[in-house]
């Protein structure tokens, strides 16, 4: 554990709290992508299957349980008490529509879930169920934020807490990269290219967002995506 990894984890943890605080405070989930949240739930459920058979530290175990339960709570809220404020029209991917309003969304399944699973079958750290699901979760996490970013792209501007949420998740990924560089130079056998490549791709997806978020903060202006 180093300061970069710890800060990254804390930002990740804060991101859930920001989102939940916002939804409860405004009694609304407007601007939040249900698709991204469901994808994150799948990510955590697949990756943390090892809760049942491997123990790293109490810290890791507690965080894993928190990530799964917080995301499950967010998804549950979006499907129940805040359902009426869910902005389904802006949470559509190209290719959705065949299953109008029903889950799982056609576009997400075809463009995101299936490709990630196929990639996991090809590039993994062992051809066994857990390893394939683990690799799948790594790839899926890399692109899980896409529906949320698309939603932001469609609405052009986001509500402050939603932006803060995206910022926290993006910053957490950025800090993980610094953590990997640090580990690479300080640990003897630290080598995980699959995670590094996916992590870098994932972080790059936030680059655009970060740029406009920073501009808005710097100028004290409203966050607005171009054209």
């Amino acid at each position: 554990m180093n300061i970069f990894r710890l800060s990254g984890d804390m930002l990740h943890l804060i991101s859930f709290l920001v989102l939940m605080y916002r939804m409860r405070g405004q009694r609304s989930c407007r601007g939040v992508s249900l698709k991204s949240q469901i994808l994150f739930l799948i990510v955590f459920c697949c990756r943390y299957l090892d809760l049942f058979f491997s123990f790293v530290s109490l810290y890791n175990t507690m965080m894993k349980i928190f990530f799964i339960s917080a995301t499950a709570t967010i998804v549950y809220w979006m499907l129940t008490k805040y359902r009426s404020s869910y902005d389904m029209d802006n949470d559509k991917l190209h290719g959705d529509g065949s299953f109008m309003g029903h889950l799982p969304p056609h576009g997400v399944l075809g463009y995101i879930i299936v490709p990630c699973f196929l990639l996991a079958l090809i590039w993994n750290e062992g051809f066994e169920a857990f390893e394939i699901l683990w690799a799948f979760s790594i790839y899926l996490e890399a692109v899980a934020i896409l529906p949320q970013l698309f939603m932001l792209q469609k609405t052009k501007e986001g509500e402050a807490f939603t932006l803060l949420y995206i910022f926290c998740v993006g910053a957490y990924r950025g800090l993980y990269i610094i953590n990997w560089i640090y580990r690479y130079f300080t640990e003897k056998h630290y080598w995980q290219p699959l995670v590094w490549v996916s992590g870098v791709v994932q972080t790059l997806l936030y680059a655009d967002f970060f740029y406009y978020y920073w501009i808005a903060l710097r100028d004290g202006a409203k966050f607005q995506l171009p054209g």
Binding site: R5, D9, H12, D50, S54, V56, S57, N60, M63, K64, F67, E125, G126, W134, Y176, N179, H189, Y190, W191, Q192, V195
Partner: peptide, 10 residues
């Protein structure tokens, strides 16, 4: 072992 070590992150 090393495999476990690779999965010590979240």
């Amino acid at each position: 072992d090393e495999d476990d070590k690779a999965k010590d992150e979240l």
